[in-house]
Amino acid sequence: MSEILRLDRVSRHFSGLQALREVTLAVNKGEVLGLIGPNGAGKTTLVNTVCGVTPASAGTITFAGQDITRIKTYQAARLGLSRTFQIVQPFAEFTALDNVAAAALFSQGHENVKTAREEARAHLSFVGLEAQAAQPAANLTLAMRKRLELAKALAMKPKLLFLDEVNAGLNSAEVERATKLIHELAASGITIVMIEHLMKVVLNVCSRIVVLHNGRLIADGTPREVINNPAVVEAYLGQQYAQRSAAR
């Protein structure tokens, strides 16, 4: 498998706080990589650093053979790096359709809003929001807004998609639905990096898992290897979880 994204000794600090410490990581084309770790481990910072929101303090990032360490956010988006936000960020006054149209319009170099809207409709129906197309994003439920985020990310025709806790705050039926969507996306060939706390989803969806703890990468391997790794159990999963999964 060929590499699509490579982080080489990437560090990022916010004045005194070291959020990422020399993270070296490769993401292969077509895989679904799970990024897990305790709160404050640096997972979202890692995504922000790749997308150019908070550029790396040290190290280099390569995407599809191109150095993107110092890239601007909008340039990253046009290269095919797209993401969903943990805290949803809709354009609140716009309708759901226009939210997705905005993503298609500015990342794909459409010349007018009308063609972007046509394209947006397909993405909305993929995530099951076609009935809400004309509603302002502010009126959607949290689960719908999360799916709207996903539709926006897909409208950008991503090569690499970061899913930042798409399941946080959803009930189990909604989680099931979101998981099914992620499966479909992975099957369509998009490389996915997902940040997730629900181990059930991670084990169900991911082909590989990396674990961050205090900004450092402490494990990288298949789901089986990672959940049996003592360092991961110590830092994140906890003894109880390890015993339960060993008993199974």
């Binding site: 929101v53 601007k72 909008y74 809709p90 950008m156």
Partner: peptide
């Protein structure tokens, strides 16, 4: 209009 509503999200969609 995107910038007015959410500038962070606007730059994130390639604007």
């Amino acid at each position: 209009a995107c910038i007015r509503q959410n500038e962070t999200a606007a730059s994130m969609v390639g604007l």
